[in-house]
């Protein structure tokens, strides 16, 4: 955004650190919320950090080859790369992003990169549970990607742009969230978020009881730690993307300036993403697990209908 590469680099590191911290705390909060719903005390909120520290402190790590090494790194890199193309704060100098015309379409591709790298790594371990998990994961992607793409296409038609920053500018300028401008597209995207998080009832990929945690079954120690880190950052990426697209984003370059402005923007961001995050979490508490074909069929019914309605809305109620 600016010419100064030092500030940009600092911003990138800061963004990654922020995403990591917030994502890990959200994971801990999720465990706490589930525990309270089951009338338990639950682990402390920082439990995920302890888990990560312990996993990184393992003294041996078994490997099955080069792709097993690369898969967790791939997941981590895909998550951070996706993060760099998403405006964390609107127009801020401290959290830069490589935005360009058409980055929405680019993000669509980037968001499945992690799963693909994981699939390659799992393929090398030769674990049958992992192979089943990967095939289930790819089936689930065919389920939730279609309503998600439909909802994005609806927005692109409605606002004649494929740039995330343009959409944020529109929301900031008019004060109208896109969730209000095109509610059907928002609904379809919400349903896809349920699938993206792989929480119950869509936890068919890493089902511990039937698949022994699926693709992760051969990854222990430091590999598992890297996967956990990548997953936390990616969870934050998904939440910020939906917030930017439909809930107006966070931060207001005109209203607040300086460090106080950044801080206020971050608070706004945390509130919005946390409320959004509680939707898949609270659904996951009460729902049992779908079978694979039930999950895919679910996404091809109501979410698909909402996506189609979103396109019709975008065309006729412009």
């Amino acid at each position: 955004m600016t010419g100064n590469w030092l500030i940009e680099l600092t911003g990138i590191v800061l963004t990654a650190l922020l995403a990591f911290t917030v994502g890990m705390f959200y994971g801990g909060l999720r465990r706490k919320v589930i525990a309270r719903a089951q009338n338990r005390v639950g682990p402390p909120v920082y439990q995920n950090f302890l888990d990560l520290l312990k996993l990184q402190g393992k003294t041996t790590n078994v490997t099955h080859g080069l792709m097993t090494h690369l898969a967790p790194v791939w997941v981590l890199v895909a998550a951070i790369t996706a993060l760099l193309f998403i405006p964390v704060l609107h127009g801020g100098l401290w959290f830069p992003n490589f935005t360009f015309k058409g980055d929405l379409i680019f993000l669509l591709y980037l968001m499945v990169m992690g799963s693909l790298g994981m699939a390659l790594g799992v393929g090398e371990t030769g674990n049958p549970n992992g192979a089943i998990g990967v095939s289930r994961g790819l089936s689930l992607i065919t389920g939730y990607e279609i309503p998600f793409v439909l909802s994005l296409v609806a927005i692109m038609i409605q606002f004649h742009t494929t740039s995330l920053t343009d959409l944020m500018h529109y929301q900031q300028a008019t004060g109208h969230w896109i969730a209000r401008e095109n509610p059907f597209a928002f609904l379809a995207a919400l349903f896809s978020v349920l699938g993206m998080f792989h929480y119950s009832p869509f936890d068919i990929i890493g089902a511990p009881a039937e698949l022994a945690s699926g693709p992760m079954s051969e990854f222990g120690g430091k590999y598992l730690g890297s996967l956990m880190t990548g997953g936390s950052i990616f969870a934050f990426v998904k939440l910020v993307l939906i917030t930017d697209l439909f809930l107006g984003g966070a931060g207001h370059p005109d209203a607040y300036t300086g460090a106080a402005g950044v801080l206020l923007g971050l608070v706004e961001l945390v509130i919005k993403t946390f409320l959004l995050y509680m939707i898949p979490v609270s659904i996951g508490i009460v729902m049992p697990r779908f079978r694979t074909e039930q999950a895919v069929r679910f996404f091809w019914r109501w979410p698909l209908l909402f996506g189609a309605l979103g396109i019709i809305w975008a065309v006729f109620w412009k």
Partner: peptide
Amino acid sequence: LTSRYDAERLGIRGAATPRQAD
């Protein structure tokens, strides 16, 4: 592990495979 005695508050949780377990 479940609600009555809640070992998760001490950081004890189930692992699915030997690779992940301590």
